[in-house]
Design a protein around this nucleic acid. Structure first.
Length: 796
DNA sequence: GAGTTTGAAACT
DNA sequence: CAGTTTCAAACTC
């Protein structure tokens, strides 16, 4: 499958913003390699999904989950959860212990996160928990029988009680050490084997790294669980196990988003490197995320990397999220690093704009590659929230972008050669296998592995969408864009990302890999792969295919009504600059020319190399060339002023030649203008303003008059139309019909004859005729009024 | 719509 | 940094 399901897309924007949502997903270096492709996004029924974690065959393999779950007890019918708190991090593990074929559903009552599983097999697989540094290591027991036996025995040595629905780990030791677990409210929720919703989590701490865990049932963990239950989101992280004998296991791992100031609506965006996020049941569990754990998690630097750059209000801040950080790492979730460091990193970044929130990026780890922690770079957009995304060059052929109409977010789906065959299966239960070595990016309600790309000038800060208890309906009308970026070789050109044009996307230049990055306006992401959109739409049952096709029809530089509506800025008319200089407003705004009137335009994807070079040149000349000239003042728009000031000489700064005047701001001390009249007390300016106001008033009045007239006309038509339809062609209010006219004329002629016969003077004759005419009119009016009444009584 | 004016951008 | 040229938008007719 090549397309991110709309369900997933709809869930993307929510939980990206919060840095707290970014979690490091450490991996075990001793984890053996597995050639088995990790499913990226599954189209197969959810029932086939399974989570194999640390099978016995691979004792060294660790599953590390870093998410907190929503309060299971707060959601009636939700599955029991195991909450483990490591240090300051609270972990809640919700195993989908569906013992029946029916799909299970877990919904966070507060966040709305829903985790549904449809495991057809009885999930009795025991797991070994190991938490260190916000990490939970789970080791699956060799056989389910052992689990069952452990459950039946309920021996103290089994560490975790089964009767309790929620397991609380009050203290977590280092890897391999015992974990103190507690069952709060034992027996509060009767365990039902057949009912997943009420079923008790059947976790069994059995082995970790092949060793027996001997956790001790503690008694001080209750508080921990209840503290942050409302801030939890759930996420499924299935992992395939080499041992096929073991039944597939559904496993839900959740993590507390923020233990501090985050509101319940705050969403979490945990991303696990190299794992496939799959939405198993779009209908039942919109928020469900299935992650496939890559077998190879060795941390190494790999050339092909992806970087998502999103300018927010922290322009120069680079937020790097290490997904595959070693277990020994601290609990730090994000690290600010220089942009240069971020380059060359594989990035599956999910970002959502949030006011005054740093960029949050989640990255995923490839399976076949040794990967360094994915790093995301936040490039501060000036004057507006804008995202910059760097798309590796080499992988462009494997990238497919999707844009939902009406959405400002783009979806870029990585399509590898091996998975291309499955591209046409975007059915609701999206399941796709991801080849090793390919970054897997799938976004769900809990995980966002994409980067929202917003139009440079229309980007609004997106408030994290509060999650509702009800399953979220996936629609194609969301106003957000997501980029899913593939891994790529290190780009040769690394422009100053902090100064890139707003909404810039660095993508591969035509001609293959290692050519360099092409700076692509975020707006242009839609244009980037329009043809691909068409292909996707036609070859798959993607629900939003029709919409995508509509977008795909948009020409780069042609005329399109749809594009026109989405492109408020005026088209340029460049003729000599090739639209690669700042003369061109499109280029200056970091946008591709689209629907413009320019000639010999190079400001498009076909000329990425030239464009990139031009951008670099501009940046070399002026590092802030692409930053907005009109900066916002600290105290509001009233303090807006031109960053450089104007240099007008003849316009008096009262024409649109002046950039200050054009921006509707007054000239400031930094302006070098001559004869400036664009200041507060300027009478000319006031006059202009008054004129402008008057003109505006006139326009408004005219508009109102037109509206009123139109309304009256419409009203008249509305009144006459039904009569027309019923009157057989005779308008009831057309009083002077042919018959009436003839009768009137006969009356007038009769009066004229009488006057002539009586030899009346001409004046008297005219008077008589006029009187008769008046009588006729009165009769007509009277008849018409009567007819109106009759018609009204008949028709109504 | 063609021509002029204007000032920012680019160039020297 | 200053002067000049280029350029495209704004403006005028």
């Amino acid at each position: 499958m090549d397309v991110v399901s709309p369900e997933l897309n709809s869930l993307l924007p929510d939980e990206i913003m919060d840095t707290e949502a970014i979690e490091e997903v450490p991996h075990s270096q001793s984890e053996p390699m597995h050639d088995t492709p990790v499913p990226m996004e599954t189209d197969a029924p959810v029932t086939s999904e399974s989570l194999n974690i640390c099978s016995n065959a691979a004792p060294a393999e660790h599953v590390q989950a870093v998410t907190t779950a929503a309060a299971a007890d707060s959601a009636p019918g939700s599955q029991s959860s195991v909450t483990i708190s490591a240090s300051s991090t609270l972990f809640t593990i919700k195993p989908a212990l569906a013992t029946s074929t029916a799909a299970t559903k877990t919904t966070d009552s507060l966040t709305g996160t829903t985790v549904s599983t449809s495991s057809t097999q009885k999930l009795a697989t025991p797991f070994a928990f190991s938490a260190a540094n916000h990490q939970i290591i789970l080791s699956k027991v060799a056989s389910a029988q052992a689990t069952e036996a452990a459950k039946a025995a309920a021996a103290p040595a089994q560490v975790i009680k089964q009767e309790g629905q929620k397991l609380l780990v009050t203290t977590i030791g280092k890897s391999g050490q015992s974990i103190v677990l507690q069952l709060p409210q034992t027996g509060s929720k009767p365990q039902t084997s057949g009912d997943a919703k009420s079923q008790t989590p059947q976790f069994k701490v059995v082995t970790i790294d092949g060793r027996e865990l001997k956790p001790v049932v503690g008694s001080a963990g209750n508080q921990v669980t209840t503290l942050q239950a409302h801030q939890l989101k759930t996420m499924q992280i299935p992992k395939k196990t080499p041992a096929s004998s073991t039944a597939p296991i559904k496993f839900i791992i959740t993590k507390t988003v923020n233990s501090k100031g985050l509101s319940p609506q705050t969403s979490v965006t945990p991303v696990i490197a190299g794992r496939v996020v799959t939405q198993t049941s779009p209908v039942m569990s919109p928020k469900t995320i299935t992650l496939s754990e890559p077998h190879n998690t060795t941390i190494q630097s790999v050339p092909g990397k992806k970087i998502a750059i999103s300018p927010l209000k922290t322009p120069s801040k680079v937020t790097v999220v290490s997904v595959a950080s070693p277990p020994s790492n601290t609990s730090q979730k994000s690290v600010a690093l220089p942009v240069n460091v971020a380059l060359g990193q594989q990035i599956l970044a999910v970002q959502q704009s949030a006011p005054a929130s740093p960029v949050k990026v989640a990255t995923s780890q490839t399976t076949a590659q040794n990967i360094k922690p994915v790093q995301s770079v936040a490039v501060g957009g000036v004057g507006g929230s804008q995202f910059k995304t760097i798309i590796p060059l080499a992988t462009q052929p494997n990238v497919q972008q999707i844009q939902v109409p009406g959405s400002r977010f783009h979806y870029v789906r990585l399509v590898s050669a091996t998975t291309a065959s499955a591209a046409g299966q975007p059915s609701a239960p999206n399941t796709s296998s991801v080849p090793t070595g390919k970054p897997l990016v799938v976004n769900t309600g809990a995980v966002r592995m994409s980067v929202p790309v917003v139009q440079a000038q229309t980007m609004k800060q997106v408030v994290p969408k509060p999650l509702t208890a009800a399953p979220q309906v996936v629609t194609t009308t969301q106003t957000q864009q997501r980029l899913i970026m593939p891994a790529t070789p290190l780009p040769q050109i690394q422009p100053n990302f902090t100064n890139l044009p707003p909404g810039t996307v660095l993508t591969s230049a035509p001609g293959g890999s290692n050519v360099g990055y092409a700076v692509v306006p975020a707006q242009y992401v839609t244009q980037l792969q329009q043809s691909q959109f068409v292909t996707l739409a036609s070859s798959s049952s993607f629900p939003a295919s029709s919409s995508i096709q509509t977008q795909a029809k948009l020409p780069y530089n042609g005329v399109s009504a749809a594009e026109t509506t989405s492109r408020p800025r005026k088209p340029c008319n460049c003729t000599k600059s090739q639209c690669l200089k700042l003369y061109c407003d499109c280029f200056a705004n970091g946008e591709f020319c689209n629907n413009c009137n320019c000639n010999n335009c190079f400001n498009n994807l076909e000329h990425e190399t030239e464009r990139l070079k031009a951008i670099k040149t501009c940046l070399d000349r002026n590092p802030e060339a692409f930053k907005p000239k009109i900066g916002k003042g600290k105290e509001g728009e009233s303090d807006r002023r031109h960053s450089k000031g104007c240099n007008c000489k003849r316009s008096g700064c009262l024409k649109n030649y002046c950039e200050c005047y054009e921006a509707k701001i007054m000239c400031s001390s930094i302006c070098k203008c001559i004869g400036c009249k664009n200041f507060e007390e300027s009478p000319e300016r006031k006059t202009l303003m008054h004129l402008a106001d008057a003109a505006e008033v006139r326009v408004q009045q005219q508009t109102a008059a037109k509206t009123k007239l139109s309304s009256q006309i419409s009203d008249l038509l509305m009144r006459t139309t039904p009569i027309i339809s019923n009157g057989g062609g005779r308008l009831p209010y057309t009083f002077v019909t042919k018959e009436v006219l003839e009768a009137t004329c006969e009356c007038l002629l009769e009066q004229a004859k009488r006057a002539e016969q009586t030899r009346q003077p001409q004046a008297e004759a005219e008077r008589v005729i006029l009187e008769e005419f008046g009588h006729c009119l009165m009769s007509i009016i009277s008849s018409a009024g009567k007819a109106k009444t009759d018609c009204a009584s008949i028709n109504c």
